[in-house]
């Protein structure tokens, strides 16, 4: 392309005033000018929808750069790790998980001070110990607050039982 043509087309494309002398002589530049007019009219006629009114509500994640997202993710993972370690240090897996697995240890038993309410303790504790869901599954004597008359005899009975169940040689 000639330099004259290039400069003229740049001026035409920029919407500057140009003399039409060259355009009249050069068929290619004339075609360029004609097509440009068509493009300009089409571009100006592009539909313009109304502008949304009111303040914008930011969508979740909108405007967050990749770096900031990574920092947020790392913070969340650190927090989760810290909570997990703290739970482990307090005595094994959380109660619900231990009960689900069928393993029951003293440290797994829910404590009122941790759970915050008696109802919650009943909900978690009772199904695992075979009690009803409506009350704490405590031994009968504790539930009724009655004195067990055989309680004082139990150590002796156990002792006798131990003696009788020893192998003959040891006796």
């Amino acid at each position: 392309m000639k330099r004259e043509c290039r400069e003229l087309r740049e001026s035409l494309a920029a919407g500057e005033r140009v003399t039409l002398e060259h355009v009249g002589r050069c068929a290619e530049c004339a075609a360029f000018a004609r097509d440009l007019e068509w493009l300009r009219s089409e571009a100006a006629a592009l539909p313009r929808p109304p502008v949304p009114e009111g303040p914008r509500r930011r969508r979740v994640g909108a405007g967050l750069g990749g770096r900031r997202s990574l920092v947020a993710l790392a913070s969340a993972l650190s927090l989760a790790l810290a909570v997990g370690l703290a739970l482990r240090d307090r005595g094994g897996a959380p109660p619900a998980r231990a009960l689900d697995a069928g393993v029951k240890r003293a440290s797994d038993e829910p404590r009122l001070d941790l759970l915050g309410s008696l109802d919650e303790a009943v909900r978690v504790y009772a199904p695992a110990t075979g009690g009803s869901t409506g009350r704490l599954a405590l031994p009968r004597s504790e539930q009724s607050h009655e004195i067990d008359p055989l309680a004082s005899l139990r150590p002796a009975a156990l002792l006798i039982e131990d003696e009788t169940t020893k192998p003959r040689r040891e006796r």
């Binding site: 290039r6 087309r9 740049e10 001026s11 035409l12 494309a13 920029a14 360029f32 097509d35 440009l36 068509w38 493009l39």
Partner: peptide, 24 residues
Amino acid sequence: SEGTVKTHLARAVERLRRELEEVR
């Protein structure tokens, strides 16, 4: 610069002319 804009515009028009030849 304005010169750069003019170059961008001329190239854009050339390309649009080619792409929209059939439509025109």
